[in-house]
């Protein structure tokens, strides 16, 4: 309980501050409030723009791939990789193309590079998701590379390829990462 003038003044200030809080918060449509509110939307728009840009940049590769001109698609990817060296999308497309060409261990390695750079490719909720393709490759990898490694247990490149497959399996299994 307030005992003297200072106590009473402090108590009044406390009540005043608490009472003013909801009034200030209710003024959400102030310019500062709107700036805060835009943060999530801005982020969503930036992501959509990024997805569109990726689709546009890599469209020639996808066309070549769909036409079955796989070596040309790989060449085009190499060109783009010089322009966008840290872009996961190129690695994922390369994984798909190498998978179609039957080079399983290289396809897995490309997927690993892509997923390490951006885990959205194994995420169902992302428009970039290639989860089902990566899942299929990982399952095939466990079977084929695992069987080869049983035959040649000393083979280091097979061991490295299996490690890559297991990385993909772990990412596909989910978890908090």
């Amino acid at each position: 309980m307030p005992k003297d003038t200072l106590d009473r003044a402090l108590f009044a200030l406390l009540l005043l501050s608490l009472a003013a809080l909801p009034v200030v918060l209710a003024g959400e449509d102030s310019s500062a409030g709107r700036r805060g509110g835009d943060k999530a939307m801005e982020r969503r728009m930036a992501y959509q723009a990024r997805v569109e840009l990726l689709r546009r940049v890599y469209a020639p590769v996808e066309t070549l791939r769909d036409q079955g001109r796989l070596p040309e698609a790989l060449l085009k990817l190499d060109q783009l990789a010089r322009q966008y060296p840290q872009e996961a999308h190129g690695h994922i497309l390369k994984g798909e193309i190498l998978g179609r060409m039957g080079s399983l261990d290289q396809a897995v390695a490309s997927y690993v590079q892509g997923v390490r750079l951006n885990a959205d490719y194994v995420d169902d909720k992302s428009p970039l998701s290639r989860r089902s393709e990566i899942e299929k490759t990982a399952e095939e990898g466990v079977r084929a590379i695992g069987a080869d490694l049983k035959l040649y247990p000393e083979n280091r490149s097979l061991a490295a390829a299996l490690k890559n497959v297991n990385y993909l399996r772990s990412r596909l299994a989910g978890g908090c990462e």
């Binding site: 999530a40 995420d123 909720k125 978890g175």
Partner: peptide, 15 residues
């Protein structure tokens, strides 16, 4: 959910 608090739409935090 004020605008300055961020909520993931992808990844483990969206689960």
């Amino acid at each position: 959910q004020p605008g300055f608090v961020l909520f993931s739409e992808r990844g483990s935090a969206s689960q």
